[in-house]
Each structure stands twice: as C-alpha cells, then as structure tokens.
Nucleic acid binder design. Sequence first.
RNA 1: GUGGUUGUAGCUCAGUUGGUUAGAGCGCCUGAUUGUGGUUCAGGAGGUCGUCGGUUCGAGACCGAUCUUCCACCCCA
Length: 456
Amino acid sequence: MAQKPSIPKGTRDFSPEEVLRRNYIINTLRHNFELFGFQPIETPSFENSSTLMGKYGDEGDRLIFKILNSGDYLNKVSEKTYESKDSNALTSEISEKALRYDLTVPFARYVVQHQNEIEFPFKRYQIQPVWRADRPQKGRFREFFQCDADAVGSDSLLQEVAFVQLYDSVFTDLGLKGALVKINNRKILSGLAETIGAADKLIDFTVALDKLDKIGEEGVIKEMLAKGITEEAIARVKPIFNASGSFAEKLSLLKELLVDSETGKQGIEELEYINTKIEALGLKTVGLDLDVTLARGLNYYTGAIFEVSAPEGVKMGSIGGGGRYDDLTGIFGLKNMSGVGISFGLDRIYLVLEELGLFPEQAIKGTRLLFINFGENEALYCLKAVQSLREAGITAELYPDAAKMKKQMSHADKRNIKFVVLAGTQEMEESVYTLKDMKSGEQHRVSIEGLIEALS
RNA sequence: GUGGUUGUAGCUCAGUUGGUUAGAGCGCCUGAUUGUGGUUCAGGAGGUCGUCGGUUCGAGACCGAUCUUCCACCCCA
C-alpha cells in the first residue's frame, strides 16, 4: 500500500469552507485596521537567527524553529563543538536562520532597518503566520496566524484609547457580544512589588498573580511563598485578590495601596486617563474592565497591558492581547521609540464564532448556479449564459463533462449549489433556459435576462 | 521540555481471558431511474489493525521503541 500521507504535528489543512470563514474574519480585521489608519506591511517567514534568539527568554529560544544551513553543514562544525555534544553551541554553528516566532520582533527589526523611510508615528498592521515548536493542544498550534496592529513613535495614551476602540469596532462588526477588554498597567504591578518589598521578584510576583483565576487565591499564595515572597508582603496585596466593583472603585483601592510608590501612581494615572476618555466616547459592544491580576508573560511590556476574554459561557481563553513597550527597538539600536500594539487570535476567534453560530451565510457562499452539460453544442449555448451571469457578478459554472444527469445533479447537491440550469435542444430552439431551484424543486423556463434577474 | 492519553475501512467507532476468513453505522461506486439531486430499495468495492521490533504454536489484543491524537504542566495566541 502507498504510504499514508500526513502533516506535521500542530499544523492543519483548511477546507474551502474553513478558508472562506477565516477570510471573513481576516477581511473584517483588515477593514477595521485600515479604517483606523494602520498600514499593512509584510516581513519574511524566516529571519536571521540573531534577530530572534534571546528576544523571548530561554523558554522562547527553545520554541523557535531553526532552519538547517544548506550544504555540508556538519563538516564546518568545529571539532570542539562537535565533541562537546552541546546542543546550543552546535545549533548556532549549523543554523543561522529561523522561522518567525511572532510579528512584533520582526516589526521592531523593520522599524529600525527602515527608520529613515518611515514617517512617525507609524501605525502598521500585519496578518501572517508564525511558528512555534510548542507541544500542541486545543486552540494551540505550531503554525498559526497572528493579526497584529502596532503604533510606534508616540507616547500619547490616546493610542491606547484607540486600541480599545479598535477592539470594540472589530467585535461589533463580527457580531460578537460579551467580549471583555481587560486592562492593567505594568507600572501598577511594579508599584505593588515595590510596595511590598519584592521589587526584585517582580516577574515571579506577576506570574503568580496572573494565575489567580486559574488556581485561586490559595494557589497564588502558595506559589508566591514558594518563590520567596514573605507572608507579610502577601498580606499587604491580598485586597487585590478579590477586588470588585467598577473601574473607578478598583482604582481607588489601588490608590490606597500604592500611595508610596511613584511608579504605581503613574500607572494609576494612565489607567484613569484611558478610562475617562473611553467613558466619554462610549463603547458599542465590548466592555472595558480593570484587572489587576492581568500580567501577561511578555517581558517587554512597560505600560498598559491588554487582554480580551471570550464571552462568558464559551470555553476559550483570551482571544486577543497586547500592550505598550517603551523600548522594543532598543535591542536593535534605536532608542526612545515607544510602541503600543494589540493582537487578535484568529484561530480562537474562529472557534468562538463557530460555537456561537455567528458566521453570516452570505460571507461563506460559493457557486450559486450550475449548468448541466448535455454535450458540445449545449455546452457552448450554456457558456454564453455563464459569461453574462459572471459579468453581472453572479458566480456560475458549467459542469465540465457531459456526464450522466444523476451525477451532475448530485454534484450540485453536494456542493450546496442553490440553482441548476438545464438547457438541451428544446431550450436552445426557444432561446430559453430551464432554471431549477434545488431546495424547492420548482423549475421554469426563462431568458438570459430572466436568469440574471432571478439570481440578483 | 515533564507527566498522562489515543491510534482498527474515506469518517465515527465495536472487536470477550491471546485462537479459523477482523465487523457496524455513515460515506463512496453500480443499478431500480436514457432530461432531474436529496428520500427509499437491491447489490458492490474498500483494512499490512499507526510503524518497527519482541514474547508466543498462534498477536488487532501482551511487552519495548518510535510517530501521531488529545489533556495537564511550563509557556503562550
């Protein structure tokens, strides 16, 4: 037997229906990105390893797909490296290119490389696949699309405000109600760590805090203790574990806690500014909420942190996220370039829309009209009508072979084509077409104009 | 990367303590029906039981390795 074909772990094929649905989401995103003044760019699917390595932490480096050098790469490895069997050392000698891990670092590289051509502030969007050598599970793949919008070269908090509006606009267009934009600020997290005397354990502190909704208060406390944060310190931040109420109420709780922290107070001011503006402008679909426990993993966020959660009742994690990073381009030598950006999780939005039945039928329709093929002469007669229909913007096609009627009709049925036309010698003599509605089974004879009218 | 889980027809799955020729439903093909699809009826094709190795007189079943599926952790969209 022939070898059973397969695709690599964590990758997927997409059927026509799936591609149409994905395109519907992508088109909605693209439309809104452009509406907000973002410009499209694209970057290569693989970069020099040096561009990517070390930007995502040790864990990230492990998850980057490396591309093997061409030629007799092993022959060029130094004896010392070869004999040491040190994977990391060997990797850098046999691989100098790697698949894109996200869109943010390539964007930073792009900005630095093209800084003299770019007009700042620069707002770009980018919708491309990225790759991670992760172990896949539900909603997590080794190849997936990121849909990013970032703005660099402006410190203004109005950018943050615009991103909240962008989320609102996109989810309004997609008809997805109940999504919640959660916002926090890295400075508040720093302030909290500072206030409790754990400034040196900021990362451990935030990682533990981020798990609150997953492992609960006890779990978080346990993890913090394990990381060496004292009981007194934990007791001081305990009020935020079950902070509730309005945005303003949570802010006032933070104000009390962070009264001695300059950094913390600055974070509060920023959140207050964003919230005030959003309240004045109003949101159509999404909600905006302050979530003090929001502490997304990426180390480079310095200000606002965003995360969008799916509507309640849908078993899905975040469907988007982002934040402000003050010095992303610094690693490539361009200082003082603040950026802020968000990302939409295409695959997860797809799963949510599917679960809630929110894909509009018109967005995913295929061919609407199939002409049955009775032979050479009849086919030509049909193609004339096909041509006219296509000129009128109606998707129509002729079955390519004069196959059995049953086969052709069944083909239309399986492809979910709503109408078929039967045109044989009788119809040709009278210059008409027999149009059949596949759902009702009704059929009648009409002219070309009649066809166009019926399908319009 | 750690721990667990899964793999039998195109798809979803049965398959008894290891014992002839491995089954079902759906789908597919042919016919009933030479200008009418879906429904119905009759017939038919399709399997190296993920792969490699081991135990055994005998393996779909037991053991090992490997790949794959899904889940939890780590991390993340």
